[in-house]
Design a protein around this nucleic acid. Sequence first.
DNA 1: TATTGTTATACTCTATAACTATA
DNA 2: TATAGTTATAGAGTATAACAATA
Lengths: 170, 170
Amino acid sequence: MVADGLEPEQLRTYFALMESVSVLHHAVEQQLQQEGPLSYVQFQLLARLADAQGPLTMTELADGVVYSRSGLTHQAGLLDKAGLVTRGPSPDDQRATLVTITDTGLALVAKVLPGHVQVVRELLFTPLSAKDLRALDDTVGRIRDHMRARPPRSAAPRKRRSAEPAATEE
Amino acid sequence: MVADGLEPEQLRTYFALMESVSVLHHAVEQQLQQEGPLSYVQFQLLARLADAQGPLTMTELADGVVYSRSGLTHQAGLLDKAGLVTRGPSPDDQRATLVTITDTGLALVAKVLPGHVQVVRELLFTPLSAKDLRALDDTVGRIRDHMRARPPRSAAPRKRRSAEPAATEE
DNA sequence: TATTGTTATACTCTATAACTATA
DNA sequence: TATAGTTATAGAGTATAACAATA
């Protein structure tokens, strides 16, 4: 494959990265589904809320997890319906919705976490030395920060779109 | 977050990895959609076929890209309908379907690749030094090989399943 | 009997656009 | 006018199960 502008090594790294994370993601989804049931997105949202030790607004919750507002509304609705979170108005900003994790939600995270961690350790960390891990942590952290520094990310429904595809049908 | 069995550093690395690849995946999907239109899965399939310089069976094509046979059949059907691949019986094994990329398919890969590579370089490789890249390539390659060495991965609808979920229905 | 692949179907996720309400 | 969030809706992706055919 001729990847103009990218070294062969980079291309190989890229594909290996994508495949690895795909497999990991798939394994993790299965584990969460069986022991939750929870999707990875839902798990992330709950984990964030658990970590925050207090309510978060929808916008805060969205950042880095979801790419459209409506998607988050949908997921939050499911979590709410399942009794894992509650939603209410914010005292500070009447437009905002504050999401709070319930005890049931906390319990579910606690229930699911051991199995989750086990899958991650087995799949991702088993083949790594302590040195590998340090380097990976540093590198991936840098990559994430770089990506975070760029576009809005959380949800910007404004403008966009142009360029017509080559498709002849639809 | 108390992640029993996983060091805090590992947990942080894991989340950073998942978030980074999620952003990268999302960016890449957008680029492929606009310039293709193509999904990432479809791009992978075409890239594999282009790389193989010859037909591949459905099973070979599935490996590492898709996790169910029907999913691949669906995607191959779309690519076929779009004129990007052709499918036919295998002379060796009458059960197998051989998938071949067409000139149109090759052209589309060529058309899409520069923009694709640009997104990857900008998002993934810009913040990395040459040393980082070498380490990342090595580490990720090892991770992928480790994952490949494990379960069947391509598509094994046979047996499996046990352990009853908490679900009350089915 | 095991494997390759397809079909039918159901479900989940995501995103766009339109809309409401508050800042 | 811009921002926070919801709703409705449509589209794509994925997986399970049942099936047909070949090894």
